[in-house]
Computed example of a mutant assay.
Amino acid sequence: MIGTPHASAPVLAAYSYCEAVTGQQAGNFSYGIRLLPTAKRRAMSALYAFSRRVDDIGDGPLDDESKRLRLEETRAVLGRIRDGDVEEDDTDPVAVALAHAARRFPIPLGALDELIDGVQMDVRGETYETWDDLAVYCRCVAGSIGRLSLGVFGTVPGARDAERASEYANTLGLALQLTNILRDVREDAANGRTYLPSEDLAKFGCSAGFGSAVPPEGADFTGLVAFEVRRARALFAEGMRLLPMLDRRSGACVAAMSGIYRRLLDRIAETPQAVLRGRVSLPGREKALVAVRGLSGYDARSVHRQTARGRA
């Protein structure tokens, strides 16, 4: 088993694999973790690579029964990591890297069980009547990532309200996931999935779904998007209270990822029907600029100003 935090050659190779996966597939996530010191960046890459594996099973071409089997196999790998049964020469580099990261940092591995639970909800084709129902799903697939990340970041000694750090990390995850849901309404509809709460769809006349580039006849799609954007912004404002509890580089990482998603949310708010024509995204240069500003301009006072504006 991997017995010490020291990174041997096989462990370093496993981390390199995870960093390659992250660089190729992580998109917005990768811009934030570039700001972290090496050990934390490697740990976050291991978390991403494992999470990517889980997501790919849920989104892949397998039939539902095969997906369920693969997810349980992945849960078994997680159990081996938790029990310390992963050797440095294991053939699974993601397991090797994550096992090492979990020994170096107090990562709450149970949150990865929640991620698997959330993807199983996708496989079952669950829909959500209310925001409270959807929030359970969002906690599993995104709040879990916030809490896992906090295990790597840690909090600064003496941070005020540090006992609420996990709550705020979870809330940021919900904000990011709701932004993703708004961005992907057309793509999800094409895959037979609807995430927005049924009661919200009914309220704005959108229960017919999003199968075309125009809203359903008589629907107030702009009103629906504005309603969900306000909810996401309130979640961001609450979750951003986490930032003063983090060290500068961890805080900059979170600020960068949150900033990218908040800009994306602004784009969606400005042109709601754009999400029905395709995936709304930010140019790479704009993402990089947000990330650089996160490292050079992050400070607790700016965070307090941002959260105050979000609550207004």
Rank of each mutant, 00 (worst) to 15 (best):
Q177S: 06
T194R: 10
S258P: 06
I260D: 06
L242A: 05
A252F: 08
A208M: 05
L265G: 10
M240S: 05
F210I: 02
F227C: 13
R186I: 00
I181S: 03
P215K: 01
R164E: 12
G259Q: 06
V254G: 05
L176M: 15
L246M: 11
G239M: 02
M245C: 09
A252I: 05
S166Q: 13
A255F: 12
R241Y: 09
S258K: 02
E187C: 03
N170L: 14
M240C: 12
P197W: 06
A175S: 06
N191K: 14
D184T: 00
L172H: 02
R233P: 04
A226G: 10
R160F: 15
A213L: 04
R249W: 14
D200L: 14
A252Q: 03
R262S: 12
Y195C: 02
S166W: 11
G218E: 06
A213F: 08
A237F: 08
S166I: 01
E228P: 07
T194D: 06
D188K: 01
A219G: 04
S207W: 10
L196T: 03
A162R: 08
A255I: 02
G239W: 03
S250A: 15
M245Q: 05
G259D: 10
L246C: 11
L246V: 05
A237P: 04
A226C: 07
A252H: 00
R262G: 06
R186T: 02
A175G: 02
L264G: 07
Y195E: 01
A189D: 12
F227R: 10
R186S: 04
R164W: 12
R262Q: 15
L182M: 12
G251F: 09
L242G: 01
A256Y: 13
L176Y: 08
E228R: 10
S198L: 14
A234M: 07
G173A: 08
L246K: 01
E167S: 14
G251I: 02
R262T: 07
I260E: 10
F204Q: 06
A208E: 13
G251A: 13
M240W: 11
Y261T: 00
E238Y: 02
E238S: 08
V229W: 06
D220W: 11
D200P: 07
V229M: 10
D161S: 14
T194Y: 07
L172G: 07
A169S: 10
P197C: 09
A219Y: 08
M240Q: 12
G239K: 00
L174A: 07
L243Y: 05
R231M: 07
L182Q: 00
F221L: 03
A190H: 13
L201H: 09
F236V: 01
N170E: 15
A252T: 03
F227S: 14
P244L: 08
V254Q: 10
L224V: 07
G251T: 04
D161A: 15
A190T: 05
R186P: 00
K203W: 13
A190D: 15
L235H: 00
R183K: 07
